[in-house]
């Protein structure tokens, strides 16, 4: 394999320990192989898995926490949780579902400990403008309003809504991730949608 692998540059890829000749795992390894290797204590395989999933996990955390710094903390703790618990992953669900569940639990735990934040202070994370300044401003104001409405949702509603609308997860997967029944998930997603629609109606 001629393709370079990102982890080849990590500090521990060289060194004096026995096995210093071991380069990074090939980057086309299938997920199951990486999971088994990580379960047997292969840190490089775990790093590869984390690299593959971290963007999606971070997106979820950013949308659930409404704050990038907190989302970074949640992702970091969740990845460590995943390393510590990966031996207990039995493949009943997709690995991505299992990882979403760990991040979700971390986020909900952090939200429970968090002091209530005034809705106005929630990081609206404006997107870069793409068309005419007036139209962009209007659209960005709409995005800001949506971010605020999202932040104002109860946590369990927001988690389900983000998994569905941002991460594109199915209702059965969201039920596995949140530990709720599929009917409860459908109800939460609908309540979230309705509340967001109402908030956006009053904003318009």
């Amino acid at each position: 394999m001629a393709r370079a692998v990102a982890v080849a540059a990590s500090p521990s890829a060289s060194g004096a320990e026995v096995g210093s000749g071991v380069s990074a795992v090939p980057d086309e390894l299938d997920e199951q192989t990486l999971v088994v290797r990580a379960q047997e204590g292969d840190a490089r395989a775990f790093e590869q898995l984390a690299r593959r999933h971290q963007d999606a996990l971070y997106r979820l955390a950013v949308r659930v926490m409404g704050d990038r710094a907190e989302a970074e903390d949640a992702l970091q703790e969740a990845l460590l949780d995943a390393w510590r618990r990966i031996g207990r992953f039995r493949g009943e669900s997709a690995f991505s579902t299992w990882m979403y569940r760990i991040v979700t639990n971390r986020c909900l735990g952090m939200l429970r400990k968090r002091r209530p934040v005034p809705v106005e202070e929630v990081d609206a994370a404006p997107a870069p403008a793409q068309d005419s300044p007036e139209r962009a401003a209007e659209r960005d104001a709409g995005m800001a309003a949506l971010h605020r409405a999202l932040a104002a949702l109860p946590d369990d509603l927001r988690v389900c809504w983000v998994l569905r609308e941002v991460e594109g997860q199915g209702y059965a997967e969201i039920a596995q991730i949140t530990g709720a029944t599929e009917d409860a998930v459908r109800g939460r997603i609908h309540r979230a949608r309705t509340r967001l629609a109402e908030a956006m109606r009053s904003w318009r």
Binding site: Q54, D55, Y58, R59, V62, R63, R68, A71, E72, L75, A125, A127, R139, M143, L146, H147, E165, V166, G168
Partner: peptide, 10 residues
């Protein structure tokens, strides 16, 4: 649009 925003972790 929200779903297309793709914040990446540092």
């Amino acid at each position: 649009r929200l779903a297309q925003e793709d914040p990446e972790p540092p």
